[in-house]
């Protein structure tokens, strides 16, 4: 590969062999006999000789301290099972949800959170794949009442945030209401219907044209356009 290839962005699919001897394996790239092998469908990014794949699609993999949106989907003995859009359900222990002592002989978990409730939570433990613990005890966390939700694949968040937050700041500046970006790809919006439609259009554009150039100006165009009828 030429020197220029350092900054080259390329669509790759599993099994593709990178023959350049200088390259080191980054995420989604493994060492094989022939050199390095790409394992995941997406865009190859090479930075300082490190080859990494930005996946086309990905299931959310929680990290400690991530702020996520979850839906309560079941009761356990001492807490709730919460779907956070990952491989398995996260567990919310009752002590991570309420301050008082919970006595299961006289009290029910459903007095606090019910199946179908939506919560904003923080990931506290990711010890093993499939054992995620969350809390709603920190400030700002807990049950979300009335809000709009937009769900995107978590890989899209990078582009929605933009370099140093440029994209999300642009969006926030132009849309009235509160926007929360949860790490598992859920966008929570508190505001009126028309603003929601505007936001949804913007997010849709960014998701569909994830890799497009000049995205910021296209987004500006939508945001400054007051005619917000949605055409789906």
């Amino acid at each position: 590969m030429s020197e220029e290839s350092q900054d080259e962005k390329k669509i790759v699919i599993p099994g593709e062999v990178l023959k350049d001897k200088k390259l080191r394996p980054g995420e989604k790239v493994i060492k094989t006999v022939g050199g390095l092998t790409v394992t995941t469908y997406g865009i190859l990014a090479v930075e300082r000789n490190k080859a990494t794949v930005i996946p086309y699609k990905e299931i959310y993999r929680p990290r400690k301290d991530d702020i996520v949106i979850g839906a309560v989907v079941g009761y356990g003995n001492s807490g709730w099972f919460v779907d956070i859009g990952s491989y398995t359900k996260a567990f919310l222990h009752v002590s991570e949800a309420i301050n008082e002592k919970f006595d299961s002989r006289h009290d029910e978990l459903s007095n606090y959170l019910k199946i179908g409730d939506i919560i904003l939570a923080k990931v506290t433990d990711v010890a093993r794949l499939g054992y995620f613990q969350i809390t709603i005890k920190d400030k700002g966390l807990g049950k979300i009442g009335d809000a709009f939700f937009i769900k995107v694949n978590p890989v899209k968040l990078r582009r929605i945030i933009g370099r140093k937050g440029s994209m999300i700041n642009l969006i926030k500046k132009n849309i009235n209401g509160d926007i929360i970006l949860a790490k598992n790809g859920v966008i929570v919006f508190k505001g009126d219907y028309d603003s929601y439609i505007k936001l949804k259009k913007t997010i849709k554009l960014i998701s569909e044209k994830t890799f497009a150039s000049g995205l910021t100006s296209k987004v500006s165009e939508i945001l400054s356009n007051d005619n917000t009828n949605i055409d789906e």
Binding site: I13, K209, F211, A212, S213, L215
Partner: peptide, 20 residues
């Protein structure tokens, strides 16, 4: 197979990772 996957990404715009 390669073409099917590559053209799917291309629908998402010309590849241009660097933010303007």
């Amino acid at each position: 197979q390669v073409n099917a996957l590559v053209s799917k990404v291309k629908e998402m715009g010309e590849i241009e990772e660097a933010e303007e």
